[in-house]
């Protein structure tokens, strides 16, 4: 083997795969309501936990979670991070994402938190502005597509 040239060949390949993700009924109902400006969860019968994103069954008790309930529009930041690096498929930095527990929900759902350029100018300040416990509210886009990108969070300044 030592007699063969010590160099290698690189074979390039680009891929494009198209997918059509089927949502199922539960997620379709959630997304259609999102398109109407409502965020829905499902309430588990036995322990009353409200799941957002919705589940058909409570993941703890395995009982049906059949009751649909609207949550929000207010919510509480469980955690947020200010993203300052560019990632493929994400917005240009800086931007904020937060896990927010919407009022009436037992779980949190992650989405972008909108801050002003002034608030983002100093990152230590911005971290405090979106610290755990901060109150936020849902803001829907005018043009909605029935996707999670139809909404984001903004600070709830009362």
């Amino acid at each position: 083997m030592s007699e063969i040239p010590q160099d290698t060949i690189v074979l390039p390949e680009d891929r494009h795969l198209h997918y059509d993700f089927a949502s199922g009924y539960i997620t379709a109902h959630f997304l259609r309501n999102l398109g109407e400006g409502r965020i829905l969860g499902t309430r588990a019968g036995a322990n009353g936990r409200v799941y957002v994103p919705p589940r058909a069954y409570c993941e703890r008790t395995f009982e049906p979670a059949e009751e649909w309930v609207e949550v929000g529009p207010g919510g509480t930041v469980e955690a947020a991070t200010i993203v300052t690096a560019k990632f493929l498929g994400h917005p240009d930095p800086p931007f904020v994402i937060g896990m927010v527990r919407l009022d009436g929900a037992g779980t949190a759902i992650t989405n972008y938190i909108e801050l002003s350029d002034e608030q983002l100018a100093d990152l230590d300040t911005a971290r405090d502005v979106v610290a755990p416990g901060t109150r936020v509210k849902v803001q829907f886009k005018q043009e909605r597509q029935g996707r999670v990108t139809d909404f984001h969070y903004v600070l709830d300044n009362g």
Binding site: Y19, F21, S23, T27, L31, P53, E78, A79, A80, T81, V83, A85, F87, L88, G89, H90, P91, F95, I97, M99, I109, T110, N111, Y112, R127, P132, R147, V148, T149
Partner: peptide, 27 residues
């Protein structure tokens, strides 16, 4: 790594392996 998130709820939410760790760190 971002493809590990489901396409309906989390893939467009800004989550990736680094931001999910950042959220843990902030908490």
């Amino acid at each position: 790594l971002s493809l590990m998130f489901d396409p309906f709820y989390e893939r467009e939410s800004g989550l990736n392996t680094i931001t999910m760790a950042a959220l843990h760190a902030e908490m």
